[in-house]
């Protein structure tokens, strides 16, 4: 017999029943178990590890803040790795945003064949980093690589790229730019979302294409740019595979970054304590940068639905 409407309403609005609560906890139990054993537990353990010295074989030894003190005051290689990581992120992330915005702007025009161009620009971003690392070792090869052959065509004598301490970081930036298409998808969707009325109204007011781009398109895209910026910073600071495969941090540590350095300490030298301290330092750096970008967002990110006081 179907229940009366009142019963149905009552059932809907009453407080959670213990039966329903129980089922909720049963259903999310995999997450709770996973969270405790793969996230929260390890994080607490990691704090303890970062305060100790442990090579996996001798019993761990509590040494207080020594790892952190060493890290921030004595470890020149860490500072170099940090500098390289920032250098890489600060150059590659804005370049990605600028180029991706430019391409998306062109792709947004009503012209034939845009689907093909869109696919062509997007495909390189699908190549797994291991494969692109193998490929770019050859592209950057000093004498036989195509990049220097290409430059020689214009009479430019290209550098030794990955083998030259002055160029190795920029080489990694160039390589990352091959995947610039990954950021285009969202930007293009963002551009399509800009209401036509804005352009029409501005046209009546006599705005040119350039003004429309800087006064309408770009401001309307800031939420997407903001998202790409945050993801780019987080991803850039965690760069690992390229460095590990292509340069091993060389030459002379010129391309060493924080995560490869952490990997070396933890899994080559088995300095579990020092490695954990490095991980927390990286965590703090990522958090601070993300917060700064979030804080700055009120100055430059425009949300249509936001009510400004």
């Amino acid at each position: 017999m179907p229940p009366l409407k009142e019963d149905y309403m009552k059932k809907f609005f009453e407080k959670p029943k213990w039966n329903e609560s129980l089922w909720f906890y049963i259903m999310i139990s995999p997450w709770i178990v996973g969270f405790l054993s793969f996230t929260l537990g390890p994080m607490i353990y990691s704090i303890y590890l970062s305060l100790s010295k442990w090579d996996l074989f001798q019993p761990p030894q509590y040494i207080g803040l020594k790892n952190y003190i060493k890290l921030f005051t004595m470890d020149d290689i860490f500072w170099k790795a940090l500098y390289n990581t920032f250098y890489y992120a600060i150059i590659s992330v804005p370049l990605h945003l600028i180029i991706a915005t430019g391409i998306a702007y062109m792709l947004n025009k009503k012209m034939k064949g845009m689907r093909i161009y869109r696919t062509a620009f997007y495909l390189p971003s699908l190549v797994p980093v291991v494969a692109s690392s193998m490929l770019f070792v050859w592209i950057f090869a000093p004498d036989t690589g195509i990049l220097n052959q290409f430059l020689a065509f214009f009479g430019i004598d290209g550098p030794a790229w990955l083998l030259d301490a002055a160029w190795v970081k920029f080489s990694l930036v160039i390589m990352s730019l091959w995947g610039v298409g990954g950021g285009i998808v969202l930007l293009l969707a963002g551009m399509r979302g800009v209401p036509d009325e804005l352009y029409e109204a501005s046209e009546i007011d006599g705005a040119g294409k350039r003004q429309q781009f800087f006064r309408i398109t770009l401001p309307m895209l800031t939420p997407v740019l903001f998202f790409n910026l945050i993801m780019g910073i987080i991803g850039g600071l965690q760069t690992f595979a390229q460095v590990y495969i292509m340069t091993s941090g060389g030459p002379n540590n010129a391309s060493l970054m924080v995560v490869p350095y952490l990997y070396d300490h933890a899994f080559n030298f088995y300095n579990m304590g020092y490695g954990s301290a490095l991980a927390w330092a990286l965590f703090a750096i990522i958090m601070i940068l993300t917060l700064l970008v979030f804080r700055s967002s009120s100055m430059w990110v425009y949300y249509e639905s936001e009510v400004k006081s």
Binding site: F35, F38, T39, Q238, A266, A279, L282, I286, M287
Partner: peptide, 17 residues
């Protein structure tokens, strides 16, 4: 909030586990 934790923080303890 777990999405914001970089994998490197849990990497070493996970290895030990």
């Amino acid at each position: 909030s777990t999405m914001m934790i970089p994998a490197q923080v849990t990497m070493i303890p996970q290895f030990i586990i």
